[in-house]
Amino acid sequence: MSENMNWSERQTSVWRTNVGLAEMLKGGVIMDVVTPEQAKIAEDAGASAVMALERVPADIRADGGVARMSDPKMIRGIQEAVSIPVMAKCRIGHFMEARILEALGVDFIDESEVLTPADDQFHVDKRAFKVPFVCGCRNLGEALRRIGEGAVMIRTKGEAGTGDVIEAVRHMRTLMGDIRALTVLPSDQLMTAAKDMGAPFDLVEEVARTGKLPVPNFSAGGVATPADAALMMHLGAESVFVGSGIFKSGDPVKRAKAIVEAVVHYNDPAKLAEISEDLGEPMVGINCDDLGDKERLAVRGW
């Protein structure tokens, strides 16, 4: 074995199989749903997976209080309603919620800042699980820490439940910029780069060599229109999560379809014009600049 072997080539077969599922979800849309009926609408619209949760982020924001893992009964209902993969969220660091979701047979766990964190120091040790995990990030250091813990998919955090795409753009541009910056560093500067961004050295080395994350990179938090979805694809997202953007809009059936189509044809403005036509009201949204620091979800986790 070459000593220059990449980090990802040393991973287990479970890791490979789980990254494989993330690969299968590329070029698609993962939709937040709160009922089996919504899950069906999402599947019929061509969603590649659904995220089962009790409240979409916009409602979590509005309601306040502690947001926790969803009721297993509700998750089961959604699993029975659709044949596409079903994801569910656990709180940051709440490995027992994660164990429960694994026992339910969800296809992917999102260790998510949208729920109230359970641990302010430690994220879940995701390598200890067979079920795959996706985690949020705002920059490359955060992405590589999560990957080092075992996440097989990364999504930029954005600012969930706002319908304002600015934070999603900021995080994706930061992540992609961080990756590009690494690729031009000579190898004798990589350890300092790893120290500065607080990321595992092996992963920093691999990204410097390959110019990309070792796992798929999706976008989340604030996508509300087909144009938003296409924008994120151009900035480097390989798929898009849409939370409140669909079922908080005027016509979820139409909008769900349109966002799926926009991800496929993100490179074709004429088709995007056709797709964006007559979709009814988008979600009302919250301007991210109006959010106080305590209202920001993206700063949860480290």
Partner: peptide, 14 residues
């Protein structure tokens, strides 16, 4: 390729 057959089928029709 692999992926979700339902999603691909919908797009082929659309």
């Amino acid at each position: 390729p692999g992926g979700e057959s339902t999603a691909m089928s919908k797009m082929m029709v659309r």
